[in-house]
């Protein structure tokens, strides 16, 4: 076995030790507390998004007591709808599908941030506790109008 300097052993012991503590924290967060990154496995025909529910009627839908679905269609270079009002405290499952190329779906100032890829539905559930206006923007390059692709969400008092 290779010899290591005593100081290097100490350095690596604490370094690798804290690495494993860190990975355990991530793992507990992901598997015990359910904080996983958006990883929806539902597929969709990218050429039939407009005919496929729920994207045939995009917008905010109430699904339960204080629970909502926000279904959004992404295409170059717009989101449909591009203005949404959400009641404060609502738990919203956001579903996004694209009709053409890859887009991003980022709601600045929140944890909503996901890739939207042709053939897949992207989904993430977020509770909106703060009143205010949030900008949604495309953060994956999609063509000449990429930086103009945007929408607005207003969180309002119930």
């Amino acid at each position: 076995m290779m010899h290591m300097h005593k100081y290097e052993k100490i350095w690596l012991f604490f370094g690798i030790g804290s690495l494993f503590v860190f990975l355990a924290v991530l793992g507990v967060g992901a598997f015990a507390q359910g904080t996983q990154p958006p990883s929806c496995l539902t597929t969709i025909d990218p050429e039939k998004v407009d005919q496929t529910p729920p994207f045939d009627k995009p917008g905010l839908v109430k699904t339960g007591d204080n629970e909502y679905q926000l279904n959004i269609v992404a295409s170059a270079f717009a989101y449909t709808p591009n203005q949404v009002e959400i009641p404060k405290g609502a738990k919203v499952t956001i579903n996004v599908a694209t009709k053409d190329v890859i887009h991003g779906f980022e709601m600045a100032g929140t944890n909503v941030n996901m890739m939207v890829e042709p053939g897949y539905v992207s989904s993430y559930t977020q509770t909106f506790d703060k009143v205010g206006e949030y900008v949604i923007l495309c953060n994956e390059y999609c063509g000449a109008g990429h930086h103009l692709m945007t929408a607005k969400v207003k969180v309002v008092e119930q």
């Binding site: 350095w11 690596l12 990154p37 958006p38 597929t43 941030n113």
Partner: peptide
């Protein structure tokens, strides 16, 4: 990590493998 179509458990496995390069990086710094 934030894209659809990949199970999050496989993402986590690759996250763990990603962090293994911390070890040679610490060795290099030392």
């Amino acid at each position: 990590l934030v894209e659809p179509g990949i199970d999050p458990a496989w993402k986590y496995l690759q996250v763990v493998l990603t962090f293994m390069v911390v070890i040679p990086s610490l060795m290099t710094a030392f």
